[in-house]
Design a protein around this nucleic acid. Structure first.
Length: 383
RNA sequence: CCGGGGAUGGCAGAUCGGCUUAUGCAGCGGACUGUAAAUCCGCGAAGGUAGGUUCAACUCCUACUCCCCGGA
């Protein structure tokens, strides 16, 4: 039902194919984020199909709180609920328990014990508890193809001691998730999530602990860099070196095009990030991908990645009239001309839904083509 | 012409005899990385004109100019 192969390699970059019950996915690939079972910005599954989106990511935490996994199950699982027939991943909610906990004061915050994590719903204040087992049970009802274990996600700046705790607890929980998944025996692929922050020894420790459990794939989790810093590639490389070569590698939550290219060079073939969609809604568009530079970067892993050489960002709400570029590509499969620059500008300024939709469509298409371009390079240049 | 009301940043619109004249929109700049984000942060920018009262006036008084409402 599930399979994964590495078809070609260029340095450490891999051309892969992951087969799921809802179709095959060519990698390296990018998951667009549909946290609450919808891509924000008024997109429909037909739009995603037209843009050749391969897979989307939904979230266990959010869907558990609303509308609840039973409602989703009754609608035919996420595939029926979303009217999306392609592959879907669900994140376990581990990240939310970390990021929401950090935003709360300790009294209102998230309580993590060795056995479970308890939190309050921001929607109605009700108390909820996730255990490794319930995280898997909920995801079984949601019915995504790829599911994630409950993990302990660490922020960027933490002590070695705290990260070690998180690593070991993540490993214990990973085993419990694995056991629960085996017990339920659903047609879903379970990954393990490697923690360890930026400490090489802990990344290694975590990778080895999880490898022993033999997951279908391996995620790289945790905050890897501080704002503005660019060290994704080196941290990721520390981790991929300790992962099984014949399994998918998933860098969770990153990132920019340069992050992705760097991580691909470090051997990652599975990505997700809210960035293209969120930034689109906030008016920032990605465009002008430089394929020649992409080829150079992938062929020479030592070549420094200069974002401005790879692509351009523009804030469409602010400076479209100052730009010489025709931002919306003529070959976009969903956006129909004539959208003049002036009209687009008007839509974005007014912050009307159609303006957001337009921008989101644009950035998704950019990321789809970025990943496609990466695959083409590995196919052509790799062995 | 008579009576009444009013004039505050680009626009809208509060407050106040002294303290940075709010706030919203628009403008400009920045941010956003397993989505509590169609969000958040920052910046520039105002008292119709002329006098008067007062230690101090955007605020009180007078005149003028202009605008709005009602009536001839």
């Amino acid at each position: 039902m599930f399979s994964f192969v590495v078809k070609k390699q260029l340095e450490r970059a891999r051309l892969t194919e992951l087969v799921t019950p809802h179709g095959a996915i060519k990698g390296p690939f990018f998951q667009f984020v549909a946290t609450q079972a919808a891509i924000r910005g008024m997109l429909f599954s037909e739009d995603l199909e037209a843009m050749k989106v391969q897979i989307v990511l939904a979230n266990t935490y959010h869907l558990h709180l609303r509308p609840g996994e039973d409602v989703v199950a009754e609608a035919g699982g996420l595939h029926g609920f979303m009217n999306w027939s392609g592959p879907i991943t669900t994140d376990s909610g581990g990240y939310q328990l970390f990021s929401l906990g950090a935003k709360h004061d300790t009294k209102e915050g998230v309580k993590v014990t060795e056995d479970s994590v308890t939190f309050r719903s921001p929607l109605d204040g009700s108390l909820h508890t996730f255990t490794p087992e319930t995280a898997i049970q909920i995801q079984a009802k949601l019915g995504a193809d790829i599911i994630m274990p409950l993990d302990v996600c660490t922020p960027y700046r933490v002590t070695h001691e705290d990260v070690l705790k998180a690593v070991d607890q993540t490993a214990v929980w990973a085993r419990r998730c694995k056991d629960e998944h085996a017990r339920l025996n659903t047609p879903q692929a379970l990954y393990g999530i490697v923690q360890g922050s930026t400490y090489p020894d802990l990344r290694q420790r975590s990778a080895q602990q999880l490898s022993e459990l033999n997951f279908f794939g391996y995620s790289i989790g945790g905050e890897l860099q501080e704002r503005g810093e660019k060290q994704i590639e080196s941290v990721v490389r520390q981790t991929t070196g300790h992962l099984p070569v014949h399994k998918p590698r998933y860098l969770m939550g990153y990132g920019t095009p340069e992050d992705i290219v760097g991580a691909v060079r470090a051997g990652v073939d599975h990505f997700d990030c809210v960035l293209p969609i969120r930034n689109a809604r906030h008016g920032q568009l990605f465009y002008n991908l430089n394929v020649e530079e992409l080829v150079r970067l992938l062929k020479d892993p030592e070549r420094p990645i200069v974002p401005a050489d790879l692509y351009t960002r523009i804030d469409i709400r602010k400076s479209i009239f100052a730009s010489d570029f025709s931002v919306f590509s003529a070959d976009h499969p969903v956006i129909q001309k004539p959208y003049t620059k002036a009209y687009v500008h008007h839509l974005m300024r007014a912050e009307v839904p159609s303006g957001n939709r337009l921008a989101v469509l644009h950035n998704i298409w950019f990321y789809v083509r970025l990943m496609e371009a990466i695959r083409v390079v590995i196919e052509k240049e790799g062995t």
